[in-house]
Write a protein that binds this DNA or RNA. Structure first.
Ligand SMILES: [Mn+2]
Ligand SMILES: [Mn+2]
Ligand SMILES: [Zn+2]
Ligand SMILES: [Zn+2]
Lengths: 136, 136
DNA sequence: AATTTAAATAGAAATTTTTTTCATCTACAT
DNA sequence: ATGTAGATGAAAAAAATTTCTATTTAAATT
């Protein structure tokens, strides 16, 4: 948790109970979740809890690099823990059955500065699969 | 347009004026658009036009491989034309200023069957950049 | 420990986005 | 021409997200 606390502080943000709780939820389940999912789980822990706070914090934690934004086309936002202890550039592979997230190493895109005349600003890779557990 | 008509028919779907109009819009502007954008443009051409049809058709055309789904984290869906004349596997690079879409060749992911014990089902790559036009 | 202050929060309300339902219509195979 | 599965618009509903504001809080400073 100290690792995350430092990340938050390094970004000039406050370490609040809500933020620690959100990180704990992700740390505990290692699966990608929607704002609504988080909201539901936070309410078990906090009697008062606002959905706007959840939206704000998920975005803030993604901004800090603590959470990864997961893209799906079902009209929901997803976030997952970006467990990059070493800080090396990576992407994510997610299980379409259970939502488990694993790091995906070996990206050869982040070196390139230009493609097709486009100046590269960012890139996103996501692999969808079925994890060992869900395969049998 | 025949190219698209065939694709639609090959998927057992009907070639309707609405669908042709949507393809025309993308063919004409070569930029990624939201359902709302499309709806606005369709209304210029058709006096009656429903938003549900737009949502349905964008998804259907994406399913056929005619449109590409573009991911952004601004809580809107985006679609763009997937101009794959040769049908070769590819992804897309988009201009974050104007929305222009260009094909991105050379993906080495689609060959792999397994990563980290995950059985690979799908993968998605998107590069965000600034196009030639928008660079100056 | 008390004070200060900018940031974070809850809660309500508003807004935006997306889907459902259903009666009507149409593309296209027969 | 006719039949039929698929497509459509209108209206309504549902779901997702943001805005606003008064209140509270983390943490820096005394
Ligand atoms: Mn990660
Ligand atoms: Mn394409
Ligand atoms: Zn799994
Ligand atoms: Zn551009």
């Amino acid at each position: 948790m100290n690792f995350y606390v430092d990340k938050i502080k390094n970004n000039g943000l406050k370490v609040t109970p809500r933020r620690k709780a959100i990180i704990n939820i992700f740390n505990h389940c290692r699966v990608h979740l929607t704002p609504e999912d988080i909201f539901t789980r936070l309410k078990e822990e906090f009697s008062h809890c606002g959905l706007p706070s959840v939206y704000r914090n998920l975005e803030i934690l993604a901004e800090c690099g603590i959470l990864a934004r997961i893209y799906r086309f079902d009209n929901k936002r997803y976030y997952g823990l970006c467990h990059s202890a070493d800080g090396a550039h990576h992407h994510h592979i997610i299980c379409i059955k259970c939502g488990t997230i694993a790091p995906l190493k070996g990206c050869n895109l982040f070196k390139r500065k230009k493609i097709n005349g486009f100046k590269i600003i960012d890139h996103f890779i996501q692999v969808d699969g079925i994890c060992k557990n869900c395969q049998e």
